[in-house]
Amino acid sequence: MQIDIRPVTTYAEYRACEQLQQLVWGDEFVVPLNLLTTVQRNGGLVLGAFKGDELVGFVFGFLARTADGRLKHASHMAAVHPDLRDARIGEQLKRAQREFVLAQDLELMTWTFDPLLARNAHLNLHKLGTISRTYLRNVYGPEPELVDGILPSDRFQVEWWLVHSPFARPSADQVARSPLLNPTLDTPVQITHEPVVRLAIPADFAALQQHDPAIAQAWRYHFRAWAEAAFAAGYVVVDFVRAENYYVLVSADA
């Protein structure tokens, strides 16, 4: 399948970005075309994936700063048509976005994702080579948490260091010998301070949310507690192993 990756330019293409957002997420969080066009004209990026004339994916990001004042690219949104999620379009979009950011003489791109979604973890951590050392609670609500059974929108913030990552992945042997911190949902939080550790997530969290909301809720708070404790102890997420659905973390001190 031929996919053309290029900047969004026309009114119809920006409208297609709105429509794709509605298809993927519903009406609640749609970024309107007037904001998309303004960002595109002022140092940001709206990059589309086209199958012929049809927009089937896009990414949207803008210039931003880190807490210490470093310029970066903040990637806010990435969407792919649900029928094409296994066509590696998201990966193509992110790699094209990387080239755009490098051309601006920037070395860092950040974005957030739900750390319990294994598909996204595999793309972000394993394929693209991002890292994470920031856990954000309930980024998009609800407020208060668990209104009408809706789970809090916790996120990992990932850092994509485009030239040189500050943390290397451990060897396969190191990973195989590392402890799994949370083998069960009721495992009490206790950091072992090993050089490499693993942190598990469900194989299909979206299915849990639909078919077993109580277990999905338990996973949200279980993983929040473990991830926050690991980051506070100086660990950094550097990889995700899809076959067994666990994150690989290394000690920053090591």
Rank of each mutant, 00 (worst) to 15 (best):
G90H: 02
E107P: 02
V46I: 12
T130H: 08
D204T: 03
L181E: 04
V56N: 00
A254T: 09
I150R: 10
L55T: 10
T10V: 01
A74K: 12
F29V: 06
V8G: 05
V39K: 01
S153V: 08
Q209A: 04
A67E: 12
S153Y: 02
V238W: 03
L47Y: 09
V189K: 09
T184K: 14
L55H: 06
H81K: 03
D68G: 13
A103R: 15
P142Y: 02
L93E: 02
V241R: 08
L63M: 15
T187C: 06
R6E: 05
L36E: 01
L151P: 08
L125S: 12
L63T: 13
W160P: 02
T134Y: 11
V31T: 14
L128M: 07
A232T: 11
R169Y: 08
D154Q: 01
S165T: 11
P183L: 04
V196I: 00
L102Q: 14
R41C: 13
H211P: 01
A206P: 10
E99V: 15
L93T: 07
D148T: 05
G44M: 04
Q2G: 05
T130Q: 03
Q104V: 10
A121W: 00
T38V: 11
I131K: 04
L71S: 13
V196Q: 03
G43K: 05
F29S: 08
L117H: 12
S153L: 02
A78G: 15
A203V: 12
E13L: 09
A168K: 11
W219D: 05
Q157K: 09
Y221S: 00
R177N: 01
S165F: 01
E18S: 09
A229K: 02
G149K: 14
G61S: 09
V158F: 03
L55I: 14
Q209T: 14
P170L: 01
A79S: 04
R242F: 15
A49Q: 00
H73E: 09
T184M: 05
P202F: 08
F58R: 08
N245K: 03
P202E: 03
T9F: 15
T134F: 12
I150D: 14
L35V: 15
H211T: 15
H76L: 10
R169K: 12
R169D: 01
Q104R: 11
L249M: 11
W160K: 04
G129V: 04
N245Q: 02
L45T: 01
G90F: 04
D68Q: 13
P183Q: 05
R137D: 15
D173I: 09
V80I: 02
M77G: 04
L180D: 06
K72P: 03
L108N: 06
T9L: 14
Q2W: 04
L181I: 13
L20S: 07
A121E: 00
E194Q: 13
G234K: 07
H193P: 03
F29Y: 10
V59N: 14
F167R: 11
A225I: 01
C17L: 06
L45W: 00
C17S: 09
F156P: 05
A74Q: 13
L123K: 00
A96E: 09
A103S: 14
A12I: 10
V31R: 10
V163L: 12
P179T: 08
A206W: 03
D186S: 15
F223Y: 10
G52S: 11
L162F: 09
R220C: 02
A200V: 14
Q174M: 07
R70V: 12
K94F: 08
V59M: 04
D83T: 13
